[in-house]
């Protein structure tokens, strides 16, 4: 059972079950816990190879035991996500912990990843259970529906879930090269049904400068 203690610490109550968490993110525990490094994120040889090839590196550990374990990472804000059979797309650097029953994998994101400097691939989490994602500043959760498509700055994008199509928009014109660009030259547009998590801060990316 995941719960937030404050907004920057994740407390997980365990009764013999296990969670997967970012390596080294445990800050305290109560009771009896075993920590095991999951080579290749627990995705087997194939997942390991995929992650090595795609550069979407993620070191996870498995925590198992009885009691409460607290996780935190660099005072980032933590957001809880409930998954009911749907798929969560998140940058591996923003994923803090998942129920051990959730499957993690990698997926191709295309140009969005490239424009925010996160590579062309992203991490997926799917199944039934809870996941905790991190953001710089509390994330704003925005609903996308057929009526309301959403456009997001790649540097502020954290994660999304649901049945969303993403397309990449570029506002690069000749003015960008004259130094008179709009400052928002790269944008991702989400259409469909689902929710998007954005953080009130922009990662340094090429998109921030043009």
């Amino acid at each position: 059972m995941f719960r937030l203690q404050g907004s920057k610490v994740l407390a997980v109550d365990m009764t013999g079950d296990a969670v997967k968490a970012k390596n080294g993110s445990m800050v305290a525990y109560d009771g009896r816990m075993d920590f095991k490094k999951l080579t290749g994120g627990g995705e087997g040889i194939r997942g390991m190879v995929t992650r090595r090839i795609t550069g979407e590196q993620m070191t996870l550990m498995e925590v198992k035991g009885h009691g409460t374990c607290w996780f935190a990472d660099r005072a980032s804000e933590i957001n809880l996500v409930d998954l009911r059979g749907d798929k969560l797309f998140v940058e591996s650097s923003n994923l803090l912990a998942t129920d051990s029953g959730l499957r993690t994998g990698t997926s191709f994101t295309g140009l969005r990843g490239a424009s925010q400097g996160n590579g062309l691939f992203t991490t997926t989490v799917e199944g039934h259970g809870q996941a905790a994602i991190m953001s710089e500043g509390p994330a704003v959760v925005l609903r996308v529906s057929g009526q309301y498509p959403l456009t997001v700055d790649p540097g502020a994008y954290v994660a999304h879930q649901g049945n969303l199509r993403q397309s990449f928009q570029s506002g690069v014109t000749f003015r960008t090269f004259l130094g008179e660009g709009g400052g928002e030259a790269f944008q991702i547009r989400f259409e469909g049904d689902g929710i998007v998590y954005v953080q009130p801060s922009e990662r340094n990316s090429i998109a921030g400068d043009v």
């Binding site: 704003v140 925005l142 309301y148 498509p149 959403l150 456009t151 997001v152 700055d153 540097g155 502020a156 506002g171 003015r175 004259l178 008179e180 660009g181 709009g182 400052g183 928002e184 998007v196 954005v198 953080q199 009130p200 922009e202 998109a207 921030g208 400068d209």
Partner: peptide
């Protein structure tokens, strides 16, 4: 008027143009 790069997301249709436009 916005400082460059401070927009994080929007609904609807918007244009962002340099002042020199």
């Amino acid at each position: 008027f916005l400082q460059k790069g401070k927009m994080i997301a929007y609904y609807g249709s918007m244009d962002f143009n340099g002042i020199g436009h």
